[in-house]
């Protein structure tokens, strides 16, 4: 009985996590975050300017 509850809870957590990534985060964003954290890939910076010194 305990094992069933534990497995059920784990499965539920996994499903909720996958749904959260799909609906709120996005797989592309997750991929880039993981790459940045683990593969040494660096971030991105957008810099504004006017064509004037």
């Amino acid at each position: 009985m305990k094992r069933k509850i534990l497995l059920g809870a784990l499965l539920w957590t996994l499903l909720i996590t996958l749904a959260h990534i799909q609906l709120n985060v996005g797989w592309k964003e997750l991929e880039s975050q993981v790459l940045r954290r683990f593969s040494g890939e660096r971030g991105e910076l957008l810099v504004g300017f006017l064509p004037v010194t």
């Binding site: 040494g40 890939e41 660096r42 971030g43 910076l45 957008l46 504004g48 300017f49 006017l50 064509p51």
Partner: peptide, 23 residues
């Protein structure tokens, strides 16, 4: 153009009020 793999992009504006809003 970063050797470290960082990506720097630029965005051109024509007035400072819009730059302020973008920040």
């Amino acid at each position: 153009h970063s050797e470290s793999g960082a990506v720097f992009r630029s965005r051109k504006f024509t007035d400072f009020a819009t730059v302020k809003e973008a920040l």
